[in-house]
Computed example of a mutant assay.
Amino acid sequence: MTLLGPRRPVREPVPFLDLPEAHRRIRPELDAAWSAVLDHGAYVGGPEVARFEREFADHVGVGACVGVANGTDALELILAALGIGRGDEVVVPTNTFVATAEAVRAVGARPRFVDVRPHDLLVDPAAVEAAIGPRTAAVVAVHLFGQVADMPALDAIARRHGLALVEDAAQAHGARLAGRRAGALGHAAAFSFYPGKNLGALGDGGAVTSADAGLVDRVRVLADHGRDPHDRHVHRVSGRNSRLDTVQAAVLRVRLRGLDADNAARRRVVATYRDLLPESCRVLAVDPRGEPVHHLAVVEIDDREAATDALTAAGIGWGIHYPIPCHRQPAFAGDGPPPSLPVADAAAARILSLPCSPGTTTDQIERVAAVLADHPRRDR
Results as ranks from 00 to 15, higher is better:
residue 304 R to E: 09
residue 343 V to E: 06
residue 334 G to T: 08
residue 320 I to P: 00
residue 307 A to Q: 05
residue 327 H to D: 04
residue 312 T to R: 15
residue 339 P to F: 04
residue 342 P to C: 11
residue 343 V to M: 08
residue 314 A to R: 02
residue 305 E to Q: 15
residue 333 A to I: 04
residue 319 G to H: 11
residue 309 D to E: 15
residue 331 A to H: 11
residue 328 R to N: 07
residue 320 I to C: 08
residue 309 D to K: 09
residue 309 D to I: 00
residue 328 R to Q: 13
residue 321 H to P: 00
residue 309 D to H: 13
residue 308 T to N: 05
residue 337 P to W: 04
residue 321 H to I: 06
residue 305 E to F: 09
residue 341 L to T: 01
residue 329 Q to G: 00
residue 333 A to R: 14
residue 308 T to D: 05
residue 337 P to Q: 09
residue 313 A to S: 14
residue 335 D to F: 13
residue 343 V to R: 02
residue 311 L to G: 04
residue 339 P to S: 06
residue 313 A to I: 01
residue 311 L to H: 03
residue 306 A to T: 10
residue 322 Y to H: 13
residue 343 V to C: 09
residue 310 A to T: 07
residue 336 G to M: 10
residue 335 D to T: 02
residue 344 A to V: 02
residue 316 I to A: 02
residue 318 W to H: 14
residue 344 A to H: 02
residue 328 R to G: 02
residue 311 L to I: 07
residue 325 P to N: 08
residue 322 Y to S: 03
residue 308 T to P: 01
residue 333 A to S: 15
residue 318 W to Q: 03
residue 320 I to R: 14
residue 311 L to R: 04
residue 330 P to F: 11
residue 334 G to W: 11
residue 333 A to N: 10
residue 333 A to C: 08
residue 310 A to M: 11
residue 322 Y to I: 12
residue 338 P to D: 10
residue 308 T to H: 04
residue 331 A to N: 03
residue 331 A to K: 14
residue 319 G to I: 00
residue 332 F to K: 00
residue 341 L to G: 00
residue 339 P to E: 03
residue 323 P to K: 06
residue 305 E to C: 06
residue 337 P to V: 07
residue 339 P to G: 07
residue 321 H to Y: 14
residue 314 A to I: 02
residue 306 A to C: 12
residue 330 P to V: 07
residue 313 A to Q: 13
residue 305 E to Y: 09
residue 331 A to Q: 15
residue 334 G to Q: 13
residue 332 F to Q: 01
residue 305 E to T: 15
